[in-house]
Simulated scan of single mutants.
Amino acid sequence: MRNVLLASVILISGGTIAAQAAEGDAAAGKAVFNTCKACHTIEAGGPNRVGPNLHGIVGRKAGTANGFTYSPAVKDAGYVWDEQKLDVYLKDPKAALPGNKMAFAGLKDDAKRADLIAYLKSESQ
């Protein structure tokens, strides 16, 4: 019985830790966003650069930032950016949306990607 209880505590704790990792840390994500700043801004009303302004990206339909000319791949994606879509895209943009014009090779580190998405989400409100 004691082993079952111990195993249950470990599973519950591990699940909580895994959930926290999946949610990401917005403060850490702000530092990860420094990689994105060469091409993107994030402040409300900020300009587009080589890439679109990312303020409000979470919950926004793909390819719809005002004043930015998107590739047909993004413009015709037909979905709204959510955490899952951003995770897949940011890991490997070319594989996620073939034909898009983002030159970024992708963010392979799962934790950094989760942190970045948490930051983007915090800036989308």
Rank of each mutant, 00 (worst) to 15 (best):
S8P: 02
S8D: 02
V9D: 13
V9R: 08
I10G: 08
I10T: 10
I10C: 05
I12Q: 08
S13W: 09
S13Q: 13
G14R: 08
I17Y: 11
I17S: 10
A18P: 06
A18G: 09
A18T: 10
A18L: 11
A18D: 09
A19V: 13
A19L: 09
Q20P: 02
Q20M: 11
A22Q: 10
A22H: 06
A22D: 08
E23K: 12
E23D: 12
D25N: 15
A26W: 05
A27S: 09
A27N: 14
K30E: 15
K30Q: 13
A31N: 05
V32K: 00
V32C: 04
V32T: 09
V32N: 01
F33S: 08
N34M: 15
T35C: 11
T35Y: 14
T35N: 15
T35P: 03
K37V: 14
K37D: 14
A38Q: 12
A38R: 13
H40W: 06
T41W: 01
T41M: 07
I42G: 02
I42R: 02
E43I: 01
E43H: 04
E43C: 04
E43Y: 06
A44W: 03
A44V: 11
G45I: 11
G45E: 10
G46L: 04
G46E: 14
N48P: 14
R49P: 07
V50Q: 12
G51R: 03
G51C: 08
G51N: 07
G51T: 03
P52V: 02
N53V: 01
N53D: 08
L54F: 06
H55G: 02
G56C: 08
G56F: 01
G56I: 03
I57E: 02
G59M: 06
R60F: 04
K61E: 11
A62F: 01
G63E: 00
T64C: 09
T64W: 02
T64D: 06
A65Q: 07
A65Y: 00
G67N: 07
G67V: 07
F68I: 06
T69A: 14
T69M: 12
Y70I: 01
S71Q: 06
P72N: 09
A73N: 08
V74H: 02
D76P: 04
D76T: 06
D76A: 11
D76L: 15
D76N: 15
A77E: 10
G78V: 07
G78C: 09
Y79I: 11
V80P: 04
W81S: 00
W81N: 02
W81D: 00
E83T: 10
Q84N: 12
K85A: 15
K85L: 02
D87A: 15
D87C: 05
V88P: 04
Y89D: 00
Y89L: 08
L90V: 03
K91D: 03
K91F: 02
K91E: 05
K94A: 11
A95G: 00
A95L: 11
A95V: 03
L97V: 02
L97T: 00
